[in-house]
């Protein structure tokens, strides 16, 4: 799906847990997520901390969208 979105010229960032799959499929901007059943969360944290974690991942996603890439790039969450 990432490729079809990119094909119409819209930059897309793939936030996913198993990044090797994303690389194989051909996403260009990739942000690693937390876990398969909760890529953008962590049920062991309290609600506030969990939302903060989600915010951090999405900040990285926005940064990825705003960064020029010339090939497949993984943006680690800082």
């Amino acid at each position: 799906m990432v490729k079809e979105i990119e094909r119409v010229g819209i930059p897309v960032v793939h936030v996913c847990t198993v990044t090797p799959i994303s690389m194989t499929v051909g996403a260009n901007r990739i942000v690693p997520a937390i876990a398969i059943p909760y890529p953008l969360g962590n049920p062991t944290l309290d609600v506030k901390e969990e939302k903060q974690l989600r915010r951090k991942i999405l900040n990285t996603a926005l940064e990825a969208l705003s960064t020029e890439v010339d090939g497949q790039t993984i943006f680690e969450v800082k």
Binding site: M1, V8, I10, P11, V13, C16, I36, P39
Partner: peptide, 22 residues
């Protein structure tokens, strides 16, 4: 699926997409 909704996104002038996968 994606070819279909990508066109809809384009028509509505969406300029970036965040796609999440489990």
């Amino acid at each position: 699926f994606a070819a279909d909704f990508a066109q809809r996104l384009k028509n509505d002038n969406v300029q970036a997409v965040i796609l999440t996968s489990t």
